[in-house]
């Protein structure tokens, strides 16, 4: 069993994001970067699968530059067997990322690609599905429960949908995207981080995989959303109900 876990470096979820005054991007000075929380959940699930099955290889992969090695080391510290950086210049859109991952899947032939349902920076929620489409692999998105079937060649997934939990049977190899409640990622110990620093990081380029990293989306500028103006503090429920009746959407 081989599990490929694509991961992404993103501003930490506790960071207050601010748009640069010139609209060219977000302020990154002093911003802490972390492993995308959904990817941490995906990686945790891969590690649990390995623990349950006894034998499996977990390969963490990321696309980006030197900075992203930090997140690969987090992945190794959590317990990934291998870490791979595909060096890419500048930002890529989901389609470009999925193309590169598709080439990597053809090279590595994993039984399962397990990744976060979305990255909390661009909030696109696309890569897993695009990858499934490109490779013709079965997909299960927004998964909050994953159980291996006795045959070891298929899984049963609980998916979080607007209509409630949907259960699917999925034949491997497949692409599965993780939702929040799939698990609680493990704590990474300091000795674990120190040990991970000595582990090798494999490297590849899109060219070596035979793909060009061309994005079809281009961000022209960013702006901060219009802020909400300060509201009124009321003292009693009576006042609140009166205000609501008075025109806050109620008659």
């Amino acid at each position: 069993m081989k599990i490929l876990v694509p991961i992404k470096r993103v501003p930490d979820s506790d960071t207050r994001i601010r748009v640069k005054p010139d609209g060219s991007g977000i302020v990154t000075d002093g911003v802490k970067f972390s492993l995308n929380p959904f990817d941490a959940i995906a990686l945790e699930e891969a590690l649990r699968i390995r623990e349950r099955l006894g034998a499996a290889e977990v390969l963490a992969v990321t696309l980006g530059g030197e900075d992203s090695i930090e997140q690969l080391r987090t992945g190794l510290a959590m317990g990934a067997d291998r870490a791979l950086l595909v060096r890419t210049p500048g930002p890529l859109d989901s389609l470009a990322v999925a193309r590169i991952l598709a080439a990597l899947v053809r090279k590595e032939s994993p039984d399962l690609v397990l990744l976060g349902k979305q990255a909390i920076d661009d909030d696109s929620n696309q890569v897993g599905q695009m990858l499934g489409g490109m490779l013709g692999l079965p997909q299960a998105t927004f998964v909050s429960k994953l159980e291996f079937q006795p045959d070891g060649r298929s899984v049963r997934c609980g998916r979080e949908t607007d209509a409630g939990i949907e259960t699917l049977g999925v034949r491997l190899p497949a692409v599965i995207t993780a939702d929040l409640r799939l698990n609680e990622p493990r704590y990474v110990s300091l000795p674990g981080i120190m040990k991970a620093k000595k582990r090798p990081i494999e490297e590849l380029s899109p060219e070596a995989l035979g793909v060009t990293a061309a994005s079809r989306t281009r961000v022209l500028r960013l702006e901060a959303p219009a802020g909400r103006k300060a509201g009124v503090r009321l003292r009693t429920v009576e006042e609140l109900v009166a205000r609501l009746r008075d025109g806050a959407g109620l008659t």
Binding site: D93, S94, L95, A98, D123, S124, N125, Q126, V127, G128, Q129, M130, L131, G132, G133, M134, Q139, T141, F142, T161, S215, R216, T217
Partner: peptide, 17 residues
């Protein structure tokens, strides 16, 4: 969100969410 990115993958199309 489940369906359209997969279609985009099939059609090699860029997508915005």
């Amino acid at each position: 969100k489940d369906l359209l990115p997969r279609v985009a993958g099939l059609l090699d199309a860029g997508m915005l969410s």
